[in-house]
Design a protein around this nucleic acid. Structure first.
Lengths: 112, 112
DNA sequence: TTCGTCGTTCTACGAACATCGAACATCGAC
DNA sequence: GTCGATGTTCGATGTTCGTAGAACGACGAA
């Protein structure tokens, strides 16, 4: 959003990323974004209130996991895969594989 | 830990592991154990009270990150590297590399 | 301008967490 | 049996987290 603080690639901290990826909703969001496509905020579906979804997206953004871009009145979210892979090689892939196998965050998805 | 519950390899959950590895003290403990050697409880040094250290070791154990063995009145702790690598390939290595580079948990060590 | 949409922020609350000191249980040594 | 060492557990405390609803600010459309 407006005061969005996206950490630079070399400012991304592993503890923050681990913390961000220890919640099922947030892992679900990452899974949805894992195809590399940018998604509109309103496209995202999660079993939580709007304010809670905003909170989770903020945690991901602050940790450096996602990037949020504002365009007019709406936002687009994207996974910072390149930055994460460069900084923590193998981490994202490991989490995605495990989450996929366990079905974690399966209740997070996209609008029909 | 007489009632120590060590999850089986296939019971280890990625969210629990991520949560366990999102605290600097616990990451420091994992770094100390990363050489694969089993360590005595009393050998471990961390800037927290004994009860707090016990708590952190329990979190790691419950998550399946470490294994605790009791021998008489003392305990020995060990990293479950094989199980973690088998279940979440690349995860532990990624975290250890990042933690090492950032000096996370550097205040955790071994008795002289 | 007025209205409605979009997403954030504020406020609040219960749950979970990190922390400590004290009390406890267990075991080996004397 | 008694003592000391070793970890765990309990109780308390302050903090952080996940959650929701309400209010807000920014923008586009009518």
């Amino acid at each position: 959003m407006r005061n969005a603080r996206h950490p630079e690639r070399n400012e991304i901290e592993v503890l923050s990323v681990m913390g961000a990826l220890s919640d099922p909703i947030r892992v679900g969001l990452v899974r949805v974004l894992a195809d590399g496509r940018e998604r509109g905020w309103g496209e995202l579906r999660a079993p939580v209130a709007k304010s809670t979804l905003s909170h989770h997206l903020r945690v991901l953004r602050d940790a450096g996991v996602t990037r949020t871009r504002q365009e007019g009145t709406r936002c687009f979210v994207e996974l910072r895969r390149d930055d994460l892979d460069a900084r923590f090689p193998g981490l994202l892939a490991a989490v995605l594989t495990a989450a996929d196998a366990a079905g974690i965050g399966a209740d997070v998805g996209l609008a029909p």
